[in-house]
Design a binder for these strands. Sequence first.
DNA 1: TACTTATTGAAATTGATTTTCATTATCAAT
DNA 2: ATTGATAATGAAAATCAATTTCAATAAGTA
Lengths: 139, 139
Amino acid sequence: MKETWMAKLKEKGMRITAQREAIVDILLNSEKALDPLEVYDLTRQSHPSLGVVTVYRTMECLEHLGLLQKVHQACGCNKFLKLKEGHHHLLICTNCGKAVYFEGLNFENAFSEIAENNNFLLQDHWLQLSGLCPRCQKI
Amino acid sequence: MKETWMAKLKEKGMRITAQREAIVDILLNSEKALDPLEVYDLTRQSHPSLGVVTVYRTMECLEHLGLLQKVHQACGCNKFLKLKEGHHHLLICTNCGKAVYFEGLNFENAFSEIAENNNFLLQDHWLQLSGLCPRCQKI
DNA sequence: TACTTATTGAAATTGATTTTCATTATCAAT
DNA sequence: ATTGATAATGAAAATCAATTTCAATAAGTA
């Protein structure tokens, strides 16, 4: 996974640096969406000299490369999650933030119909479920 | 409509002021979601001495009273729209921002099933469609 | 190894939002 | 109507996230 990400960076002419590797490590190992300042704090534990700006810039790149996806939550709208190819709908734990991509669902037709009924030309949709993950239900 | 809103303010022990009336007018007459600074600019056209702080505070109250709903869009996550009772799903124009509540849709069961499949306890869901409104399709 | 150029991080800047506080205005009780 | 308690207002200061600037540094190719 990490190899894929670093290869994609290189492919775009970007350089592999210790900072970028550390940031990527944090993002790939997190099961919840993180905002730049959270990534900054986590990454600095192993890389204290890291600057915030680098985190902002790196995360912006990763989003443009299609490796990260922006996730909106009650606790903030600047959170990013590793993108799973082909999946855009998330189930998010309201307690710990754990995010899971779910599948086996096709609402496209229903959405188109609604748009038509309102004379809109459908371009996109946004669906997100939230609740308690298995672990947080037990606490 | 405005009477209902002002009555609700009064009911909660809040006072009716010229500023609040002006802000409520703007929000009730807008067919798109607005953020505090947009409301500030629009309201100042008829009420130049208005302060930004008052707009922030008033909108926060209106949200707590259940009269305004927060709407997240590509163009910002601090936008507020008058809440239509019982409706939470929106169709939003990507060009002009026009927002329409739609109905005739019940995904509750499908959503519950997805949550169950992932061992999550469903608490909430968030669905928003976006596209071009009738007017913007013609431009 | 040297050199080109992308990357970095500190500091300054911006822009939105919040807090503070003295002044003003609302509204209930006279 | 007048008064008075107190809610509301708005200017200014403070805060906080995010962006820009720029000189120093490091990556990776030649």
